[in-house]
Design a protein around this nucleic acid. Structure first.
Lengths: 207, 207
DNA sequence: GTCTATATCTCGATAGAC
DNA sequence: GTCTATCGAGATATAGAC
């Protein structure tokens, strides 16, 4: 897995990541990557052969980054409340550091480019992405321990949980157009969001 | 507001809407619209002058469709529980009929194209989009009536609510890669989602 | 209004000098 | 390894015959 890149290659990759993250495959021009990286456009092809190959590397990186942000935020604590609180706090922090990440992943997967779908499926198959199955298991355990009420669907809960953490970053442009005054302090809104999401969802599950 | 189009123009617009919805501005080719609509490529320019202008019309249509799906799903009922249940059911149905809509809006707004941002802001300014302010008001009323607990942020709740309804449609490709077996019956999952979302969020707000 | 042919432009990719 | 110049594909847009 250890790919050895020169310092210059690393630098180009970093820049390419930013541009692809912002504009996606079709929106990104090789010229812009070259300009922003301060190198000649021909060098991009010298180093990475084609736009497709460069993009494939970047997509894999970013997809893993998103999935790992999710998996790494999950850590069983003394009780379910603590586990949930820790997850929400850590995952939202992670999204705040990479606000474009969830939309990038969704966008690139959506028009189902064969390349992109294949990369994702390969990563899942070779277990490079940690499965959210442990989250389901933990929910079931908490249910058996009587910490939360029974008879709900873990998969539905996880959809709601991830959606709650991620959606503000996706919907930010609309929200800011609708509530220009309310959202002038975005950082505070996101910080408060941790407790708001935990509070609502935990109460929703409690007996 | 009443723009008069011939039947043929309407037909082209309908086809263009489908293509843009699926592939976005950069992914869409005029040739594909022409082919799918069964007209000559030159006619597209004859009728709509440029791709930019055609796209601008479509984006406006789709943005309004999304915002109105949200606004129209909201209808005050006898009590807050009924209002919430109705909203979730109607809004999810609406997304089910237009599964690509939320991602389209988010995607196109994200790379901040000046055109697109301007259209959105103009629509908001001239009040062509109904404000979710009434949802906030209704939450406050229910709080005063004692139907739900006090001391939570309506705006945070709305983020969670919309995210919960919309996110499955955005994350579907990932979810299907992770849980190929669980999601073979997507329709059932979505149908059950209505009650799952209502149940979790209503319990989360109850005293 | 419609269609063919073509102009024009953008972009990914490469050849070839250094 | 690096840069300039350019090729060639593919896309938007238009000219002009009918």
């Amino acid at each position: 897995m250890e790919e050895k890149f020169t310092q210059k290659e690393e630098h180009i990759l970093k820049v390419a990541l930013d541009v692809f993250l912002e504009k996606g495959l079709h929106g990104t021009k090789m010229q812009e990557i070259a300009d922003r990286a301060g190198v000649n456009k021909a060098m991009l092809h010298y180093y990475f052969r084609s736009k497709e190959r460069l993009y494939a590397m970047i997509f894999e990186k970013l997809f893993l980054k998103f999935m790992n942000a999710m998996a790494d935020s999950f850590r069983p604590e003394q009780n379910f409340a603590a586990t949930l609180r820790h997850f929400v706090g850590t995952f939202i922090d992670s999204m705040r550091e990479n606000p474009r990440l969830p939309l990038f992943v969704a966008r690139e997967l959506s028009w189902g480019g064969a390349t992109v779908q294949k990369i994702m499926h390969d990563l899942v198959e070779q277990k490079a992405v940690k499965s959210p199955q442990i989250m389901i298991d933990e929910l079931r355990k908490a249910e058996r321990r009587g910490e939360i009420r029974a008879g709900f669907s873990p998969i539905q809960f996880i959809f709601t949980l991830i959606g709650a953490c991620v959606y503000p970053f996706v919907a930010r442009p609309i929200a800011e157009a609708l509530f220009p005054d309310l959202l002038d302090d975005w950082d505070t809104l996101i910080e408060q969001r941790k407790e708001a999401v935990f509070d609502l969802l935990y109460n929703g599950l409690k007996k």
